[in-house]
């Protein structure tokens, strides 16, 4: 379990990584990883929803401030934080009172994979719908959601693999 100081370090590190590197990663406008949601995904399972909501909001807002998209990431991250507990409950058959940090080790690969799949897609759908704010160009929007979510998942799985080795 992480201390508050460590959480703040993670927070700053992920925001900087997102705004300085990952926001500039794209293939012809598609496939931008939104790796900063890793912070929300890895939060302890039994955390109070309110705490997670505030963290997520601040995280999204920080990314927004740097990317000149005030509110977009904040709204999406807040929704993700709100929906995380139901999703977690959906994919695991654990006792909800038990505290754990979501990972392959604690959940098993398949539940963890479904967990990040649902979370990432939820986040990307909300983010891109708010960002585009229209369904005018639906194929492009869907392709963007698909590619962004895929690359984000790849990033998260890579991070998991690296951290497990340590």
């Amino acid at each position: 379990m992480l201390t508050y100081l460590q959480r703040i370090e993670w927070f700053i590190g992920l925001v900087l990584l997102q705004v300085l590197v990952l926001n500039h990663v794209h293939i012809d406008g598609y496939a931008t990883p939104f790796f900063f949601i890793y912070f929300i995904l890895k939060y302890n399972a039994v955390v109070s929803r309110n705490v997670l909501l505030v963290w997520a909001f601040l995280l999204g807002l920080s990314v927004d401030v740097f990317s000149n998209t005030p509110g977009v990431n904040a709204a999406a991250a807040t929704v993700l934080a709100f929906m995380r507990e139901p999703i977690l409950r959906l994919v695991t058959i654990r006792d909800s009172a038990e505290d754990f940090e979501p990972s392959i080790k604690t959940m098993g690969f398949s539940p963890f994979f479904r967990y990040i799949l649902l979370c990432t897609f939820l986040f990307c759908i909300i983010l891109l719908v708010i960002d585009t704010f229209s369904f005018f160009n639906l194929p492009v929007l869907l392709l963007k959601i698909l590619t962004d979510a895929s690359i984000t998942m790849v990033c998260i799985l890579c991070a998991e693999a690296i951290r497990r080795k340590k």
């Binding site: 109070s48 929803r49 909501l53 999204g60 807002l61 998209t69 977009v72 709204a75 807040t78």
Partner: peptide
């Protein structure tokens, strides 16, 4: 209560947007 917090935060986000 988290519902209210959620709605509040979303409201702030969209206001900003």
């Amino acid at each position: 209560n988290y519902w209210f917090l959620f709605v509040l935060l979303e409201a702030i986000s969209f206001t900003l947007l």
